[in-house]
Amino acid sequence: MSDTPLLSVSGLTKHFGHRIGCADVSFDLYEGEVLAIVGESGSGKSTLLNLLATELSPTRGGIRYRMRDGAMRDLLAMSEAERRFLLRTDWGFVRQDATHGLRMNVSAGGNVGERLMAVGQRHYGRIRGTAFDWLERVEIETDRIDDTPKAFSGGMRQRLQIARNLVTHPRLVFMDEPTSGLDASVQARLLDLIRNLVSELGLAVIIVTHDLAVARLLSHRVMVMKSGRVIETGLTDQVLDDPRELYTQLLVSSVLVV
């Protein structure tokens, strides 16, 4: 652990023509910290996530990241090769739609092993052994190792995505609505798994969700977004139990209705 942030974001702004995707977002994220970005659809939370993961380039602003060697680097000044290397080693991205985060025609073992092969592992037996271990950790029956995710349920696909991302021991994981569209019981099991892995591995996570219950269960801090701007931010319990902004109060109360 370190006193300097893992990720430092300043003035991040994205315009789509005249429309504002997100505006003037600044925050620091520390190692092992889970930050939830909440808001309704169209609030800019997904745009922000894509900017942070460098899948979109911002109109203005900067993102700095502390590399494994301790050096703070400007992500936007990195070469594409460096950024892609970071993305498949030190970062993870768990997508809402598992078909975008997995290779649907490749076996579960191959999906988990891909990152290992991408960083140069060339021993089949060891790659398979690691994939086996990770399937166990995300509670997928290991005799499914040679099945493709096409045959998997929604919950299993998300768990496979998690294994595929965590196999290289990343320090920062982005999650985009990872539990949406799943049955309540499946969702609860997945959230439990994520929470355990996050604390076990000391992961920093930035999770985008419209579901405040997910934010409450997983995150240390919450950022509330509306119309592309961060309108309230703070410790999760504080923001959700005692919101200052009217909009946040409405968000919270709609959760209470559910």
């Binding site: 498949r88 290779r103 490749v106 076996s107 073992g109 191959g110 092993g113 891909e114 990152r115 092969m117 991408a118 960083v119 060339r122 089949y124 790659i127 398979r128």
Partner: peptide, 9 residues
């Protein structure tokens, strides 16, 4: 890495 995924499969 993808080429080896094919061989892995």
């Amino acid at each position: 890495g993808l080429m080896h995924v094919k061989l892995y499969e």
